[in-house]
Amino acid sequence: MVGRGAELRLLRRVGRIEGATLLLLLFVAVPARRLFGFETATGLMGPIHGVAFTLYFHVACAAVFDGRWSFGGIVRVLGAALIPFGTFLNERLLTQQLNARGLSDV
C-alpha cells in the first residue's frame, strides 16, 4: 500500500535526484564542454537529467493532483524542477505538507 506520506517522501527523494542532476549538468557538464571541449560530459549528463526530470514530473503530478493542493502549491512543486536548487528549496514545503496531514516525516 502506498500511503500519502510515502508519495510525498518519494517526491522529496526524486526531487533531490532531479536537483542534483540539474546542478551537475549546469555547473559541471556544460562548463566542461564549453571550456575544455569535453562533449561527452553533456552527452552523458543530458539524458540522465532528462530521465530524472521526467520521473520527477511523473511523481510530482501523482502527489499534487488530489484536490488538496492550492494552484500556487502545484505550480511551485512542478516549477521547481526548472530552476537550479528549486527542488531543494521545495523540501520545506513538502515537509510542511507532511506535517499538516499528520504524516510521518521519516
Binding site: 514530473f57 511523481v59 503530478c61 502527489a63
Partner: peptide, 13 residues
Amino acid sequence: SGVHGALSAQIRR
C-alpha cells in the same frame, strides 16, 4: 507522463 502519474495516484488512492 505527468497526466499518467496523476491518474495512477487517483486510481491507487
